[in-house]
């Protein structure tokens, strides 16, 4: 029951998922639309419980056991709770039951997202450029012909993306574009076939119950 029921469900829904592509009839298409836009969206929305629940559980455990850096877990939990309250009761644009404005100062969820989440996320990713450059400095050595090609392609790509390159070599941006659209496309497409075949095999294994890793155990 604990194993068989999920496996039967995955087989049935797997067949249902593939059928609308094969049957272009309106009934099949409507069913597909309804299943994607209602059923899957609702079920997937509930899956957020797993993510948020795990984060809260992990950080509560850290606070309880006074693990290393446990003080910061408070910041995470408090910010999560406050943001959720503001968002759930204050509405997306401050149109909910909870007031999200004091005088001219607005603190609705959209403003919090714009001025806190976006700068934090963008800066995190911006900072990666330093680490990538540092990693590249250590890893990119022209040891052999293949490594030199990798180095040259990366160098041309980076230099060709900045306006300064036109002063050095006027055709460099075009060459960078060519590398991206011709040899890069060829390599990506070649690998893409393998990836597509691999994902097909994995999908089939999941539907047929051969791949059972997603069950999270056999109990």
């Amino acid at each position: 029951m604990k194993i068989r029921l999920p496996l039967i469900l995955v087989l049935i829904t797997g067949i249902l998922g593939a059928l609308p592509f094969i049957i272009p009839h309106k009934i099949a298409q409507d069913f597909d639309n309804e299943f994607r836009n209602s059923v899957l969206r609702i079920i997937a929305a509930f899956s957020l419980v797993l993510g948020v629940g795990s984060i809260i559980k992990h950080h509560t455990y850290k606070i309880q056991r006074r693990k290393e850096n446990w003080e910061y877990s408070w910041i995470l939990i408090v910010s999560l709770v406050i943001t959720s309250i503001i968002g759930l009761f204050g509405g997306i644009e401050g149109d909910g039951v909870l007031p999200t404005r004091i005088g001219n100062f607005s603190f609705d969820i959209q403003t919090i997202y714009m001025y806190m989440a976006i700068p934090l996320g963008a800066t995190m990713f911006a900072m990666l450029s330093f680490f990538m450059a540092s990693a590249a400095y250590r890893a990119f050595r022209a040891r052999n012909f293949e490594a030199t090609l990798l180095l040259i392609a990366a160098f041309v790509m980076m230099l060709g993306s900045v306006p300064l390159s036109t002063y050095i070599l006027p055709r460099l941006p075009d060459f960078a574009e060519w590398i991206l659209t011709v040899p890069n496309t060829a390599a990506k497409r070649g690998m893409g076939f393998g990836i597509a075949l691999g994902s097909l095999a994995t999908s089939l294994k999941i539907i047929l119950g051969i791949e059972r890793g997603w069950l999270g155990g056999t109990k």
Partner: peptide
């Protein structure tokens, strides 16, 4: 918990087969 996962996973896997081929 395997029931909602099975539904999302099964439909996703099933839908991805013809789309990946195409």
């Amino acid at each position: 918990v395997r029931i909602p996962i099975a539904i999302v996973m099964g439909y996703g896997a099933g839908a991805s087969i013809p789309r990946a081929i195409d």
